[in-house]
Structures are given as C-alpha cells and as structure tokens.
Simulated assay, not measured.
Amino acid sequence: MLAPVKPDERERLRAQAIDIHALYTAHWHYLVRLAVLLVDDIASAEDVVQDAFVALHRRSADLRDPDAALGYLRTSVVNQARSVLRRRHTVRKHLKVAEPEATAPADHDVLLRDEHRAALRAVNSLPRHQREVLVLRYWSGLSEREIAEALGITAGSVKSAASRGLAALHKVLGGES
C-alpha cells in the first residue's frame, strides 16, 4: 500500500490529501472494537488505534491512493495488536507475573447473554491466526482478498484458517450456531 513517492508527484498527491479527521470520526469506534476483539482490553485497543492513526498521519504523503487509507489503518491495527500480545507474552514469561484482570463494568453481565460470553471465550481460545481471520471476516465483514491483504497472507491461507477456526468453534460450542 505504501510506496516511495517522487518529489514532483508528492505535490500532486497533497492536493488529494487524506482527511484524517474525517477518517477518525467515521471509523474510530469500528477500529477500537476490532482491536478489542484482538487484544481483549479496551485501554490497549484504544492505544493500538491511536498509534495506527499516528502512523497514517506520518505516512499520509506516501499513500498513493487516499481510498486505501482505511485498509492501511485496518492492517496497522492488526499488526499493532499482534505487537501488544507479543509484549504481554514476553512480560508474563520473564516476570512470571500475570497481569491483574480488568474489572468489568457492573452492567457487563446484564448486557452480554451467556451464549455471547461463551462465544467470545471460544473465539479468544482460538490460535491467533484463526481468531484474526474470523474476526475480520465475520465481525468486520471483509472479503477473503481484503483479509489476505490486511494480514499479509494468501487467500488460500484465509480460507484454511477460517475453516479450521469455524470447526474448532463448532466443536467447543457443541454445534450451536
């Protein structure tokens, strides 16, 4: 998506500059919800999304197609979420101390029905690759091609991960849909 831009081309592209404020207003909630599904922590998810917007701002002049900005943000959120999870794993491994559990809001149990909590637990128990594919496919509604671009994998890998993830969910949830 990002490629070096020649200096004379840079001026032409500035004319079609990316409206980051409009992107932020329109897609911030969506991207935070996506990040929460990947990192399972609202504060970290908000940080991930904020970092993605900062990266877009820094590299906006290098983005050849302003229409690709949302795809860039989505890919950035997925990659940042992976980094957060890697850092957590490393900290836990070396310090042998688990992070304290975040306290859910008082109305959390009322808002989420039992089957939703079971489904979320099942999705969170999937391997990272399968979880990312299923979240991008069924929650974000992306096509296989878009998922492949966001994750940097082939469409065949997307199909395989989705199939294996769905089979694992079917097994854990006892065939309920």
Rank of each mutant, 00 (worst) to 15 (best):
L38Y: 03
V110S: 14
D41P: 04
A161I: 07
E144S: 13
H21N: 15
A104M: 15
A98K: 15
P100N: 12
H89V: 03
Q16L: 15
L136S: 06
S125E: 11
L13Y: 06
D47F: 05
A98G: 07
K6S: 11
K171D: 13
S157C: 06
W28V: 05
G165W: 05
D67C: 12
E149G: 06
M1R: 14
R64L: 14
S76Q: 09
V172Q: 09
T90I: 12
K171Y: 11
S143A: 12
H116A: 14
L111D: 10
A106F: 14
R74L: 14
G175K: 08
V91G: 00
F53A: 05
V172F: 06
V36D: 00
A22I: 04
D65Y: 07
S76F: 05
V172T: 14
T103P: 08
V36G: 01
A52E: 01
L134M: 07
E146Y: 02
S157Y: 06
L56Y: 03
A102F: 04
L70S: 08
A3R: 13
A55V: 05
A122E: 03
G165S: 02
S143T: 13
D19K: 03
D65R: 08
G175F: 05
L38P: 01
A106P: 08
V36P: 05
R128I: 12
W28S: 08
V135N: 04
K171C: 10
L23V: 07
H108G: 01
N79F: 11
G175P: 05
A162K: 09
D114A: 13
A162T: 05
L23Q: 05
T25H: 14
H170A: 13
P127C: 09
L166E: 10
L134D: 00
A155E: 14
A69R: 03
P4G: 03
A104C: 10
R117M: 03
L126Y: 02
R164A: 06
D51S: 12
I147T: 15
S163D: 10
A119G: 05
P127F: 00
L126C: 02
K6C: 06
H89Y: 11
A22P: 06
L73R: 07
A26T: 08
A26L: 07
A35G: 08
E146T: 04
Q80S: 12
